[in-house]
């Protein structure tokens, strides 16, 4: 349209651009700078020059470091605990939740009676408070009286907290199972909704063609439904990867604001994630370490998103 609209458009954008400049763009650069600062003090905003130490502290293990042994170093907390937990959680929960939600969406799409009711039930976890429902899961997985131990017949098994009678400590993989269960449960609704939307847009004629060809239901699903859903699958994969790398609320909800305490012989001593470390460092007045960990996380997410976008170019059917 006419050029006289030009300056007016900027007026409409001004509130958003100003807010973003102050609270999004500036902080990105600032965090990057802080991550190189020596003894940054966030209360006065002062520092004692620049250094690479914030990165070497978290990235380089100390002399004689043994993998998996808590020597109190930042390397143990960030790489050996935070990054390890984050990566494990991501690679277990993302594929698992995508497969389950896809199966549910396909099942939902193939029924008529009770469809609305099921849809509502499957969407319920989306509108819940992550912290609140995490506390419910903590009770479900309770060591002494939890329903999980009743179902599995494993009385007194410490899923997320030690057994206070026998003193049995928490096995890392039990805690890992509990948190994966919770994360997958909580992440299903959104994925089901997106997949269901995609399924409803698939032209019925593809299915008719498959039927005439005598393809079995399973074959039709694998050869017709899944390829035609690939844009949604890609979208969900990328957003869930980014989300999983930022896992934090679920840890707080399930293990309380300490991140749990496990025996350490079967894995890290806590379920702290990268983001957990970032917030913990902010709270402990070590903002420069929080910054270097956040930059590291950002770089990892960027690389993963890049790889996925590249791979998907060959695989996604539009």
């Amino acid at each position: 349209m006419e050029s006289k609209n030009n300056w007016k458009a900027w007026l409409y954008l001004a509130p958003v651009l100003i807010l973003l400049a102050v609270f999004t763009f500036y902080p990105i650069f600032n965090t990057f700078f802080i991550s190189f600062m020596k003894n940054y003090n966030y209360i006065t905003g002062s520092n004692q020059g620049f250094t690479l130490k914030n990165y070497t502290d978290i990235l380089v293990p100390g002399e004689g470091y043994i993998w998996g042994v808590d020597d109190g170093s930042m390397f143990y907390r960030v790489i050996n605990t935070g990054l390890l937990n984050t990566v494990l959680l991501t690679f277990v929960t993302v594929p698992l939740s995508i497969i389950i939600s896809l199966a549910i969406a396909i099942a939902l799409n193939s029924i008529k009676p009770l469809k609305k009711l099921f849809q509502t039930i499957f969407f319920m976890p989306y509108v819940t408070n992550a912290i609140a429902i995490g506390m419910v899961f903590a009770i479900i997985f309770d060591t002494q009286y939890g329903i999980m131990n009743f179902i599995f017949g494993s009385a007194g098994h410490p899923w997320i907290a030690p057994n206070m009678w026998t003193g049995e400590t928490v096995n890392y993989w039990s805690a890992f199972f509990a948190i994966c269960f919770y994360i997958v449960w909580h992440s299903l609704p959104y994925k089901i909704l997106i997949f269901l939307g995609g399924l409803q847009n698939i032209d019925q004629q593809y299915y008719d063609a498959a039927k005439i060809d005598g393809a079995s239901r399973f074959k039709t699903t694998m050869r017709v439904t899944v390829p035609l859903l690939s844009p949604q699958i890609l979208y969900i994969t990328i957003t869930s990867f980014i989300g999983a790398f930022k896992e934090y609320n679920s840890v707080i909800g399930l293990f309380g604001s300490k991140g749990g305490a496990f025996d350490g012989t079967t894995g890290p001593t806590s379920m702290q994630t990268m983001v957990y470390f970032v917030y913990d460092m902010i709270a402990k007045n070590k903002v420069q370490l929080a910054s270097s960990a956040a930059v590291l996380l950002f770089v990892i997410i960027l690389i993963f998103t890049g790889i996925q976008a590249k791979v998907s170019k060959k695989r996604v059917h539009y």
């Binding site: 500036y26 902080p27 990105i28 966030y42 980014i242 930022k246 902010i282 950002f298 998103t305």
Partner: peptide, 18 residues
């Protein structure tokens, strides 16, 4: 939208503390 919010939280927290 791709950038982890933690990047902003750190600096914003420092700013509001200041």
């Amino acid at each position: 939208m791709m950038i982890p919010g933690e990047m902003m939280v750190i600096s914003n927290y420092a700013s509001v503390s200041l």
